[in-house]
Design a protein around this nucleic acid. Structure first.
Lengths: 219, 219
DNA sequence: GGCTCATTTAGACTGGTGGTCTAAAGTCGA
DNA sequence: TCGACTTTAGACCACCAGTCTAAATGAGCC
């Protein structure tokens, strides 16, 4: 490493968009096709028409390239607004209606952007990818934490279990539903899938709602 | 390959237990420490004091070795009984009590056998591992399908969503809970963890129960 | 014992991996 | 024009999973 003033990441961010795309376009294609571990950095470099030295000058490692690729696709600004809106709901009904809308929008976004969906699935499946995306991921978890805490304060979300556990459950349920529809959606008609997808939201809601008395009894 | 009569797997199964252990013991240690992808077959072979030729004579590939390693640890006979018992419950209350017991037992088993827990977590996390364990995994999914269908017939389990979706959700919830406790359990006292773990079972139950009317309304 | 033929075995070898290193080329202020 | 620093190309490294060849071994059979 040089005198220590600039890090690969800063150097890359300073590049103009077009130059950045030289790596990010082939990288996205590669990561979408092969996932993280099986993606070949050598192949990406070759397809980018770049050299190894230059590549490692701008990226600390394979994970940093994946991170940059994912960050370019992800546009969370709009979602943050909807998060805030849901968090400021004044009763349980409004809260869950907002979350329903948010989820529907997420679904639509993923359906409209196959590349993003693919990268996110890779992120969810591969531990190595999660590691390189650790900070953004922690921020997302934090946002969900906040959202659930807001839900608790109006009685929309159970408060008999640790927040981080609920967040983990919610995050993994979303990923599970997404994956199931990605695998099984093709066997359904367009409308059937939409209807089912809406109903499947109940699966996400159910474990987050305050428990019913009958459940508590049975333990 | 030889005349085609015997396959690597058959050859390995024909070996006596002690000889099998020459591979399986170091393989288990390696897979537990590094997971599937990052485990080094070369290292396993070296630690086993075996040669590459002999190893590939008994195992088709790295996945086959992982499969054999996992199969040795997994003792599902006893669980099958409990599955059957739950499936033959005559009302919802009995059904869920049985499942509670089954889950408690699973928890205890995993706590008592760290190696098994580690291998199962690897299986859940890494797609490549799942691929080599595909048939057993399909069998497990089938068993859960059956269990849920039995639950539906006595009104213990919702029937407004595809069974395979419910199974996937259940399987992933179990894995999520297990992982959360593996990561966060150390910060809890023994009793607190046990109590919490029992309460967390509600998270698994909730999405499987027939929906309450208020939920259905809010959609 | 010998002969034959198939199986078993050791380990060199292959084409790939992510990542490092060196030395040349470029850049820029004085 | 010099010197100091940054950027760049690509040879190189250790290691990977998996293949291949040629020697060793073993089982029947004479």
């Amino acid at each position: 490493m040089p005198t220590g003033t600039t890090k690969p990441r800063e150097r890359f961010d300073a590049l103009d968009e077009q130059t950045q795309a030289r790596w990010l376009v082939p990288a996205e294609a590669e990561f979408c096709e092969y996932g993280f571990e099986k993606a070949s950095l050598n192949r990406i470099i070759t397809r980018a028409g770049e050299s190894k030295g230059r590549t490692y000058h701008y990226f600390a490692d394979k994970g940093a390239l994946f991170c940059a690729t994912l960050e370019r696709r992800v546009r969370h600004d709009d979602f943050i607004d909807q998060f805030r809106k849901a968090a400021s709901a004044s009763d349980a009904r409004e809260y869950w209606l907002e979350l329903t809308a948010l989820c529907a929008r997420l679904t639509k976004t993923l359906q409209g952007d196959g590349r993003l969906a693919s990268l996110l699935r890779t992120l969810h499946r591969e531990a190595a990818a999660q590691q390189s995306f650790a900070e953004p991921l922690a921020a997302i978890r934090g946002s969900i934490d906040d959202l659930l805490i807001a839900g608790q304060s109006i009685g929309a979300v159970r408060d008999d279990l640790p927040i981080t556990l609920l967040t983990e459950v919610a995050l993994n349920l979303i990923a599970t539903l997404d994956r199931w529809f990605a695998l099984n959606g093709s066997t359904l008609s367009e409308e059937a899938e939409a209807a089912l997808s809406q109903r499947a939201f109940l699966l996400l809601m159910a474990p987050l709602l305050p428990p019913r008395s009958t459940e508590a009894m049975s333990i």
